[in-house]
Design a protein around this nucleic acid. Structure first.
Lengths: 239, 239
DNA sequence: ACAAAAGTGTTACATGTACACCCATGT
DNA sequence: ACATGGGTGTACATGTAACACTTTTGT
């Protein structure tokens, strides 16, 4: 902690974004195709270097806006962690601070203002073909997905996947898709509505193509869930 | 993401450590007294700048060793998050990646090999006198404590506060002290021993000054707790 | 009438909570 | 004997899982 700059080359700092949504009953990530070396043409997480005296959060919001048409409002964004292996970027030592962003399902497939092409990619495509993602982005994605899965259990994060108004059925689909396991609609519905502050009815109803109209809700003021929505039946194995 | 270095002054990267233990029935943090400007003489978290092509984890272990006599083995260390406000350090833009370290209660009060004095400080002293800690370290401490409290609920982190061998009563004290609330010993004991892989009996017993000898345990192979040990009775208020 | 989706009731079971009580030891 | 801390039994409340059943709509 000397006041003089250290003699070593100080690493550069970047942010990378894992942007998730639920589309077509499937957890999808927004990936770009790299337009430059290294990893030219390979899919990668959107991201970029920190500028000037910018905060990491600001850089994350900026990249989100530059690379996608998503605006920061009505969007969950949280810091995941920093990745710092010295060989993670062939250009030199780059520390990447990863962010988890969660967006409601958007109708248009999001065109980046930047020249790079951005498209929603099902998580299965990413995990079933390991080694396709640039840098250590597969690891970052894995960590981000695990974070999201865990936070559904004890926070109201699931509402971030939904539009302004949503039905309990849509919220349940978020849990099923993110967790990758079926959830009983009847019990789920009761539990959600009994957890104070999770959802608040808007008064409106949505008429499905066929069937009874569903009450519409919006996200409530609660952030933590008590009691939590625990995933059961999954292995809590020993390491 | 140009291959040329960005024109902006790139921020420096440091690590800061929140090292916790339970001593004298109280959650304590290892703080140093700053020996240089800025914040000369003020208490602060141990930490320092990243060197060369070092990983953040390696820098955290190095600082832990340099500033304290703690060796990395038999010690929990995990990354918390990065703090990046451009004005958080008066010397310029310094991004700090905070780490949470958890140590068993050590007999000696840990003298740093570095000249700076390190001492265990009760958390209450830190939180009851806000504005004493250097930089944004009060915020980092707050986040670290909340992380530790949460992780006691659904992981086996509590054993990291204990020595190689411990009694259920000692483990319960960890929960009580970290959570700041009483925990029923009878139910706690049963619950811990029923959670497979949390603790394993060593076969030995410890004889208290007075009272029935307690079975000694060591940390088991499990890392996650199912069902979790939930804190109850605390406000899950609306924000 | 029927299909489809939303929502309720019910039952069996697991877990959490509170607390009376028993156990093993040193003084 | 008694204080002290470790540990068991048990009754009650609450939460979960599974699933039959009712409600509300469009066709």
């Amino acid at each position: 902690m000397s006041t003089a700059r250290p003699p070593h080359a100080t690493p550069r700092v970047a942010v990378d974004l894992v942007i998730m949504t639920v589309r077509e009953s499937c957890l999808q990530l927004l990936l770009i195709e790299r337009g430059k070396e290294p990893y030219l043409g390979r899919p990668a997480l959107p991201g970029g270097f920190l500028r000037g005296r910018e905060k990491l959060d600001d850089a994350a919001y900026r990249e989100l806006h530059e690379e996608t048409n998503l605006n920061g409002s009505r969007l969950h964004l949280e810091q995941l962690q920093a990745y710092s292996h010295p060989d993670r970027d062939p250009r030199g030592h780059v520390i990447s601070v990863a962010y988890l962003a969660i967006a409601p399902c958007l109708p248009e497939p999001v065109a980046g203002s930047d020249a790079r092409q951005a498209r929603w990619t099902p998580l299965d495509e990413v995990t079933s073909a390991p080694g396709t993602l640039a840098f250590d982005h597969a690891q970052i994605v894995e960590d981000a997905v695990e974070r999201a899965r865990g936070k559904l259990e004890y926070t109201t994060l699931a509402t971030a996947f939904c539009a302004e108004e949503f039905t309990i059925g849509e919220l349940r689909q978020v849990y099923e898709v993110v967790w990758g396991m079926p959830v009983d609609e009847r019990n789920f519905s009761r539990k959600i509505r009994r957890t104070e502050g999770f959802v608040v009815p808007t008064g409106a109803k949505r008429r499905p193509e066929t069937g009874r109209p569903a009450t519409l809700y919006s996200g409530g003021p609660a952030t933590t869930l008590y009691p939590p929505m625990l995933r059961t039946g999954i292995g809590h194995e020993l390491p």
